Simulated scan of single mutants.
Amino acid sequence: MSEKISTDKAPKPVGLYPHARKVGNLLFLSGIGPRTVTDEIPGLKLDKNGNFLEFDFEAQCRNVFDNVRIVLEESGSSWDKLVDVTVFLVNMKRDFAVYNKVYAEYFKDNQPCRTTVEINSLPTSIAIELKCIATID
Results as ranks from 00 to 15, higher is better:
S2R: 03
S2T: 13
K4D: 15
K4I: 08
K4W: 09
I5R: 13
I5Y: 02
S6V: 10
T7S: 09
T7D: 00
T7P: 06
K9C: 07
A10D: 01
P13T: 15
V14D: 15
G15I: 04
G15V: 04
L16H: 04
P18T: 09
P18V: 02
P18E: 06
H19K: 05
H19E: 02
A20Y: 02
R21N: 07
R21H: 03
R21K: 12
G24E: 11
G24S: 06
G24Y: 09
L27Y: 01
L27P: 01
L29P: 00
S30N: 10
G31A: 10
P34Y: 04
V37E: 05
V37H: 03
P42V: 11
G43C: 11
L44F: 05
L46H: 06
L46R: 15
D47S: 09
N51I: 01
F52D: 07
F52R: 14
E54V: 14
D56L: 11
E58W: 03
E58R: 12
A59E: 13
A59W: 01
Q60E: 10
N63F: 03
N63W: 02
V64S: 06
V64E: 00
F65M: 09
D66S: 12
N67V: 14
N67P: 12
V68E: 00
V68H: 00
V68F: 01
R69S: 06
R69Y: 01
I70L: 03
I70H: 01
V71K: 00
E73Q: 10
S75V: 04
S78W: 00
D80F: 05
V83I: 15
V83C: 13
V83S: 08
D84Y: 14
D84A: 13
V85G: 05
T86I: 09
V87Y: 01
F88G: 08
L89C: 13
N91K: 08
N91Y: 08
M92I: 15
K93H: 14
F96A: 14
A97I: 14
K101Y: 11
V102E: 02
A104W: 04
E105V: 12
E105L: 15
Y106G: 01
Y106M: 08
F107T: 12
K108S: 15
D109L: 14
N110I: 15
Q111A: 07
C113D: 11
C113L: 12
R114C: 13
R114K: 15
T115E: 06
T116N: 03
V117W: 04
E118I: 05
I119K: 13
I119R: 13
N120W: 07
S121T: 13
S121F: 10
P123C: 09
T124F: 07
T124V: 15
S125D: 10
I126N: 07
I126K: 06
A127G: 11
A127D: 07
I128G: 00
E129F: 01
E129K: 04
C132Q: 08
I133H: 08
A134L: 11
T135R: 14
